[in-house]
């Protein structure tokens, strides 16, 4: 009698553990729907999302070394509010010299592909100090986001 009880208990417990591990069909449906509805509602096409992702990588790699393949850019819903969540696995923050080097090379080589932020920085060298604080802020932001999502 005890053996039967034990066996059943293990089976049921095992079932629970398995259910815990894998995302069930319902959760998959809810999560997939959330994402697809976000895109439906914003009219943001996958192509545009991909473009945005590319540009963000370009911008942020000036300041941090990251795992580009693991970067995640997704819509998430918090109540009625929609949020664009960016999760960046940061390998290492770049030091000031590297950032400066990247900026000067930007200035020299890629004037056409610079976005607004970068233009502001490169136009006036006196502004580099404020830029540094900005980059620090950005680092801490990405770190906190990463902590939140992992």
């Amino acid at each position: 009698m005890k053996d039967i009880f034990q066996d059943l208990f293990n089976k049921v417990f095992g079932f629970f553990r398995q259910a815990e591990k894998e995302e069930n069909a319902k959760e998959t449906a809810v999560n997939r729907l959330r994402v697809v509805l976000m895109q439906d509602r914003t009219n943001l096409t996958p192509e545009l999302l991909e473009k945005m992702r590319g540009e963000l990588i370009e911008l942020l790699s000036k300041y941090v070394e990251m795992d580009k393949d693991a970067l995640e850019l997704n819509f998430e819903q918090e109540g009625n509010q929609m949020a664009l969540m960016l999760s960046i696995p940061v390998l290492r923050a770049k030091d000031e010299d590297e950032i400066e080097a990247a900026e000067t090379s930007d200035e020299e080589n890629e004037e056409s592909s610079e976005d607004n932020d970068e233009e502001q920085v490169s136009e006036d060298e006196n502004d580099t100090r404020t830029d540094e604080t900005e980059s620090e802020k950005q680092e801490s932001n990405t770190n906190s986001k990463q902590n939140k999502s992992k």
Binding site: N24, A25, K26, A29, V30
Partner: peptide, 18 residues
């Protein structure tokens, strides 16, 4: 099906569509 987590629940649908 809802009980076995194979189907979205009423609450899920209501929340998604608000």
């Amino acid at each position: 099906l809802i009980k076995s987590n194979d189907m979205m629940s009423v609450e899920d649908v209501v929340e998604i569509l608000s």
